[in-house]
Design a binder for these strands. Structure first.
Length: 278
DNA sequence: CTTTCGTCCTGACTGC
DNA sequence: TGCAGTCAGGACGAAA
């Protein structure tokens, strides 16, 4: 479930490719969430990789010749980097080789992922990028900015945080974690969050994302590991996936409170501590 | 305009 | 052991 920190970590793990040239490339099926670009392998072969950056949950691989490879990991997408040209594995959909000795695979069992090859100067107009909201780790993400987003929004705070039109990069896990850190119940209407809570929430979002990136970065020192997989690491979640377990830092008796609560919101599970999140 | 809901997909897991 | 059912979730696009 790659959210902003995982995508950021994948980007950093792919950094050894910057400056390299693609010597071979191939797509192994015609579509993921959307059709793959036609002749993708041919169009990538021979191109130099000039930069790798992230926008929201998208990976942007800048190429010479004025094009950018736009990737999204969807729900189950993984990138692996290896020095061995191992046989294709199940669900390996795109593969690349570079002139500095790397073999890259995009693997995605559920095929919610996305890949497009677009003109770099038109990237910001791409239909999947143009509607995106503020980067939560940018200086633009202030309490004022978050207040403007939540004002007049007649949905739950949890749903508002997940909506990429407003703030990008937050998925189900970090929405739950940030709301826990800020002490806000996920069911609260977005427009009823107080000014003080908004400031706490903005800080909580930044902190939880930064901490996760830091945890991911620590796994990247040896970026070509046994399996070469990038961007997934041990998480310590306070509430996510912990229904019925004690809330960290809570002194309540779990046998009385039932521990972390789990509810469904917009078809997704939300986890929270009813004692700490009001 | 805003908001919700259905859809895509496979693998892990549960219960019979 | 097998099989059906459920759940997980990012984001688009349709519907309300």
């Amino acid at each position: 479930m790659p959210e902003l920190p995982e995508v950021e970590t994948v980007c950093r793990g792919l950094r050894p490719l910057v400056g390299a040239r693609i010597t071979a490339a191939a797509a192994h099926r015609a579509d993921l969430r959307a059709p793959l670009p036609r002749n993708l392998g041919k169009r990538l072969t021979g191109r130099a990789i000039t930069g790798i950056t992230r926008r929201a949950k998208y990976i942007l691989v800048a190429l010479d010749g004025g094009e950018t490879l736009l990737l999204h990991l969807g729900m189950s997408g993984r990138m692996t980097l290896s020095h061995d040209n191992a046989p294709l594995q199940k669900h390996d959909h795109i593969s690349l080789a570079t002139d500095n000795g790397f073999f890259v695979r995009f693997n995605d069992p559920r095929r919610f992922g996305y890949c497009d090859l677009v003109a770099t100067d038109k990237l910001s107009n791409h239909k999947l990028l143009r509607g995106l909201g503020i980067e939560p780790l940018s200086k633009d993400f202030t309490p004022d900015a978050l207040a403007a987003i939540l004002k007049n929004r007649n949905t739950s705070i949890k749903a508002a945080l997940l909506d990429q039109k407003h703030v990008v990069g937050i998925g189900n896990i970090y929405a739950c974690e940030a709301l826990f850190r800020a002490g806000i119940n996920p069911s609260r209407p977005a427009h009823k969050i107080t000014r003080a809570e908004i400031a706490a929430l903005a800080a909580a979002i930044r902190d939880v994302l930064r901490a996760a990136i830091k945890a991911g970065g620590s796994t990247l020192r040896d970026y070509v590991q046994a399996d070469g997989e990038l961007g997934y690491f041990q998480h310590n979640f306070a509430v996510y996936g912990r229904a019925g377990l004690p809330c960290p830092g809570c002194t309540c008796d779990v046998t009385k409170t039932g521990g972390i609560k789990r509810i469904a919101q917009n078809g997704r599970s939300s986890f929270y501590c009813a004692t700490k999140q009001k």
